[in-house]
Design a protein around this nucleic acid. Structure first.
Lengths: 192, 192
DNA sequence: ATCGTACTATGACAAGCGTCATGAAGGGAG
DNA sequence: CTCCCTTCATGACGCTTGTCATAGTACGAT
């Protein structure tokens, strides 16, 4: 295996998290899904489930941030609306190819853990912050004034999350298309 | 007690669901929170936890729909942006008064259950549909063309849900304000 | 070859879960 | 009063949860 058991467990945790939520995902499930030796979990993650979930979240945030940062090079005529469509397209592809089982790990964790004290909340904050900063930075590069980029990034990620929720409930990508269609004119109007 | 044990259990289920997610909420917790006799649960909800969660969802959807429908009468100069601000205002008040423990029950349920087969998914679909139809109907009344009202309602609810997620993570209502500020011009541009 | 560290294996713990079985009150109808 | 049906009470079942303890193997360094 190219990646060691440790990395596979983080990845598996992220995937199970996305489908069953953090409370619904057991350590034993993760270990089995990763094909990892059960005894290794406590060796690699002495911090227990919180540590595993936290690392899964940061891994996912890095993935999302990289995807955002890679947009500029791939588009012929880059624009804020194009960036948003690029972000949404990833989810359309995911849903079309793999079904609607998996949602966003950040949303899953917030839904389960934001209401109580948990060490994971700090990592959620970090993950969401990283994602938002990546979007905001890209927006600035696309001509959006710096003082508005943060709020626009919040809107973009927020609308995406909401549309993901709709899409999973309806088992249909139409909500994703609808949000892109409605938001695009607004997003491009931000350009200087 | 004005409301019987049955209604109190539905209400309590909704509240606990919002803070801990559906998987994280136990029947015993709900019964205790409702101050209801434990033995009554299986009498009023022979369908078990699924039935209880489903009813909590429909109750919440009715609450949200009523709130939306009541907008027209309360505003001096009603508009789509005003409706959205009205919806968001409810959450700002909730967070300011009661903290960030409780999120949206629909989001909580989707995050935990949308990935697997569950009888609750049908009720989630119904709840979200009812909420969206209420918003769309109100939009039509405010002058938004009928063929776009659905998509705009999806955008509004989706953006609200995303902003709720941000607000809970950051323990701050700023994301709610940001989304209203950014979306308002777009929303009012839909008016005929 | 001997040691030490890294990793794997396995079993147990207390606690929680959803559900069910059984029994006891309560109160209107016959 | 007796019957019956609604409502409440309590204990138990089998299962899963996160965590821990303990032992075993692998393997490079000295």
């Amino acid at each position: 295996m190219a990646h060691g058991p440790r990395e596979r467990m983080v990845y598996s945790a992220a995937q199970l998290l996305r489908t069953r939520g953090v409370t619904g995902t057991g350590i034993r499930d993760v270990v089995e899904h990763a094909g990892a030796p059960r005894g290794s979990f406590q060796h690699y993650f002495p911090g227990g489930k919180d540590q595993l979930v936290g690392e899964a979240l940061l891994w996912a945030a890095g993935f999302a941030a990289e995807r955002v940062a890679s947009y500029a090079g791939t588009a012929a005529d880059p624009s804020p609306a194009g960036l948003f469509a690029h972000m949404v397209e990833q989810w359309k592809a995911e849903f079309s190819a793999r079904g609607y089982e998996r949602g966003c790990p950040v949303m899953a964790t917030v839904a389960d853990l934001a209401g109580e004290e948990s060490a994971v909340n700090e990592q959620v904050r970090a993950a969401l912050g990283r994602w938002e900063r990546a979007v905001a930075a890209e927006l600035v590069r696309l001509g959006v004034p710096g003082e508005r980029a943060g709020a626009v990034a919040t809107l973009m990620i927020g609308a995406l999350e909401g549309a993901i929720m709709f899409a999973r409930v309806r088992r249909n990508v139409a909500p994703l298309d609808a949000v892109v269609a409605e938001l695009s004119p607004l997003l491009d109007s931000y350009r200087t």
